[in-house]
Each structure stands twice: as structure tokens, then as C-alpha cells.
């Protein structure tokens, strides 16, 4: 396990992990600074203006604009965060998806309490699937009659991806809402029944990482986990070639 888990953020294993962490560190820095300065002022006021016999309270007023300086500072910081961080980064990470031709594409279907991964195989085309065909041997419900599905591969609770190019996941759910969470990749996206939501990431490290479910999905929510295996491109091709296509008889 590459997790290197500790009491801080997990290691950064995707291209945008750095960008997300930059925000987390910067915002916490700002928060600490504001809180410390504010607390010093607060404690000063409490000590300086404690009730003392013979010392009455005094009125203290200031101009409206001056009284709003702290609010304006916070507003300024927030405007900067929005303009220079949140909008551009959100646009790169969530609003745009890399073109399929240059990416590794898989479908993930969440269910109580497992993740089924569907790889399109060498032809890069997903075979037709049908919920009525789902059984223990055919977890993705692939239709054997569809030629596009002849080389498709299915894994359960394991996601295998190559290093060096983005992976686009089409995420959906069979039953209730789940959420695909890969801490090391800083990826999280709800899997919504009735919707196929694209979510992408590009790994920067090979190894094994953890997928957890981040949305309460029933009594086994906490054990709904899976592993991500990031291979070098060559190893990935080798792994894929060694898989038995789902619809082919043994």
C-alpha cells in the first residue's frame, strides 16, 4: 500500500492533488492567522476592560467604514480565493473532462456494497449491458449478443489503471447514492442512480491505493471499499491481456 497514511493529508498521487492541497494549506494558513490575531485582540480587550471599582465604562465609537475593516479584509481574501483559485481550479478539475480519445475510459457501477468496474477492452467500445442479466458470474450484466462487448473486461472492487494518461470514469449507481472517494487522488464524486457522471483523474504514482464510499449507503457502508492499482503502461497492457473477457466462455 502506497498510502503513507499519517495525521495529515495522504500522499499526493494525482495531477491535481497538489492544486487541491495548495488551497487547503493556504486557507488554513489564513484561518490560523485571522484566528490568532483576533484572539490576541479579544484577550487584550477582556483584560484591559475588566470591571474595576471606580472605573466606569466609556463609550467607544468609530466610523461605519472603519468598523467594517475586518469584514472588508475577509471579503477581499475571499474574492482573491474565488478569482485566483476556486474558479480556475474548479473549471480544470470538475467542469472539463479530458477527451476520451486521449484517455483511459472505464465505467464504474456502485451498488450495496461493491464497486463493479467495466473496461471496454482493446476496441475501446463498451458492450451493451442490461440490469436483467446481472448475476454472480456477470456482475456488470453484459449482453453476450453485442459484438462491442466481446473483449470487455469486468472487475469487482478492483480498479486497474495505467500511469501516464488521464482516466475518465463514467460513474453510476444501481440502487442508492454512493460516493467514489480516492483520498490519495483527492477525488470524490457521488454516484447518483439514474445518472452517468463523468469523473476524471490522472495518477502520478504507481502502486495500490484505496477507494472508500463517502455517502451513507446502508448498513455495510463502512466496508464498501476497493483498491486502485496504478500500473506502468506496459504492465497495464499485460494485465489487461491476461484478463478473461467477460462474455467469452471458458
Amino acid at each position: 500500500m502506497n498510502g503513507n497514511y499519517g495525521w495529515g493529508l495522504p500522499i499526493q498521487a494525482s495531477t491535481f492533488a497538489k492544486e487541491i492541497d495548495l488551497g487547503i494549506y493556504a486557507i488554513h494558513g489564513i484561518m490560523f492567522a485571522i484566528f490568532i490575531l483576533w484572539s490576541v485582540f479579544f484577550v487584550y480587550l477582556l483584560v484591559r476592560y475588566r470591571a474595576r471599582p471606580g472605573v466606569p465604562s466609556e463609550h467607544w465609537e468609530t466610523g461605519t467604514l472603519q468598523s467594517m475593516i475586518p469584514d472588508l479584509i475577509v471579503l477581499g481574501i475571499e474574492i482573491c480565493l474565488i478569482l485566483f483559485y476556486a474558479l480556475p481550479a474548479w473549471s480544470r478539475i470538475k467542469m472539463t473532462v479530458p477527451p476520451e480519445g486521449k484517455s483511459n475510459v472505464v465505467e464504474i457501477v456502485a451498488e450495496q456494497f461493491a464497486w463493479t468496474v467495466h473496461y471496454p477492452g482493446a476496441d475501446a467500445k463498451f458492450g451493451r449491458s442490461n440490469a436483467a442479466l446481472v448475476d454472480a458470474q456477470n456482475p456488470a450484466g453484459l449482453d453476450a449478443a453485442d459484438d462491442a462487448g466481446k473483449d470487455d473486461v469486468v472487475t469487482v472492487n478492483e480498479l486497474h489503471i495505467p500511469l501516464g494518461k488521464p482516466t475518465v470514469v463514467y460513474l453510476s449507481s444501481k440502487d442508492v447514492i454512493h460516493s467514489l472517494f480516492i483520498p490519495e487522488f483527492r477525488v470524490k464524486q457521488d454516484a447518483m442512480p439514474g445518472m452517468k457522471i463523468p469523473v476524471w483523474f490522472e495518477p502520478t504514482l504507481t502502486g495500490k491505493f484505496e477507494i472508500g464510499c463517502a455517502q451513507l449507503c446502508g448498513i455495510a457502508h463502512s466496508i464498501m471499499r476497493a483498491d486502485v492499482f496504478v500500473h506502468t503502461p506496459e504492465e497495464y497492457e499485460k494485465w489487461l491481456a491476461a484478463q478473461h473477457p467477460q462474455t467469452q466462455p471458458y
Binding site: I20, G23, I24, I27, Y85, A86, A89, I93
Partner: peptide, 25 residues
Amino acid sequence: LPMFGIGGLTGLPLGITVTDIYLHD
């Protein structure tokens, strides 16, 4: 005052879309 302050400040990385990707839920 300070305790609600902590509550308010920690809302910041949750309200920012990008950092919420990691911290949400």
C-alpha cells in the same frame, strides 16, 4: 465569540468548491 469563530472559519475550505472535493463528507 472565538468558538463560533472557529466554526465559521472552518466553513471556508468547505464552501470553496475545490477544497470541498477532498473535505466533503
